[in-house]
Computed example of a mutant assay.
Amino acid sequence: MFITRIAPSPTGDFHLGTARTAYFNWLAARASGGRFLLRIDDTDLARNNEASVGVIHDCMTWLGLDHDATFRQSDRLDRYRDVAADLVTRGRAVVADNGAILMKDGQSTPWTDRISGLQAVGQAHDALARNQVLIKADGMPVYHFASVVDDIDMGVNLVIRGIDHLTNTFRHSAIYAALDAPLPEFAHLGLIMLDGRKMSKRDGAASLLGYRDAGIDPDAMLNFLLRMGWGPAKDDKSMAVIGRDRALGLFLDGGRMKNSPAAFDAAKLASYDRKYKAARRDLAAPAP
């Protein structure tokens, strides 16, 4: 049974990469009879936009990705500070002259990615983890620390995210070790690419609500997202269309996630959209 989460920041549009991450984590949780959580990472006070919180909920609703619990990191600030203070008490963190709390001699641990296999610790990884900041001088938690504390508290045991977070996992492994907590499983997906570069929030086509407002079928979008990072074990004509119910049966054991880059293909999305809309029209048509 997997407990998974999606953790968007309310700092801009909900983009395709976030939507794919949400769908994959939803599939893993639902296919295993587990739980799927929505966490709003809103500790960046300077960049938070309350309207973006609404966008996050709108996107999840449009895609039909129901979640079992929702929480905001801004409601848990005392928890992060208490955990950091306990690490100081136990000699695993120190308070700097400016009041920030830093890890003391933290060490990354090897871990196995569900896609890429064993990840050995190198000197550069240990350097990132050793004296990393946990609580900033202004009292706010660093993303890496808050994320780990949340995942431990919520029982998250599988984290599916983009491969751009791969290095972060070495930081996080040191925090898990300092907190005497087991590592969850990790799976790092290849990035979605547009014209040979990583697709980002700055790309107009990346905004999910733009597709909703253009009338794209939400199930067509999910099928499109699924195939940009996952493939069935037997990929033939019978797999041309994979709706969410079928994806639930296939996701964990009938295929595998991929760490290779996935090219954004607008024509492919349009093709899925036509197929799903045609299927809906056929279902709605009166019987002869």
Rank of each mutant, 00 (worst) to 15 (best):
M1E: 06
F2G: 02
F2P: 01
A7Q: 06
P10A: 06
T11Q: 05
D13L: 05
R20E: 09
L27Y: 05
L27G: 02
L27Q: 02
A31K: 11
R35H: 12
R39P: 03
L45G: 07
L45P: 00
E50V: 07
S52P: 00
D58N: 02
G64H: 10
Q73N: 09
R79P: 00
Y80C: 05
Y80P: 05
V83R: 13
D86V: 06
L87G: 04
V88E: 04
T89E: 14
R90Y: 01
M103V: 04
T109E: 15
W111H: 05
T112Q: 12
D113S: 03
R114V: 02
Q119R: 15
H125N: 15
R130S: 15
N131D: 15
Q132V: 09
P141V: 12
D151C: 10
M154C: 08
L158S: 05
V159Q: 08
R161W: 11
F170W: 09
H172Q: 15
Y176W: 13
Y176F: 15
A178L: 09
A181Y: 12
P184A: 09
I192P: 06
M193R: 13
L194I: 12
R202T: 03
G204Y: 00
A205I: 12
G210H: 08
Y211D: 00
Y211T: 00
D213G: 02
D219S: 13
G229E: 08
A233I: 07
F251M: 13
L252A: 08
R256A: 14
F264T: 02
D265M: 05
A270L: 07
Y272F: 15
D273E: 09
K277N: 14
L283Y: 01
A285N: 10
A285S: 14
A287Y: 11
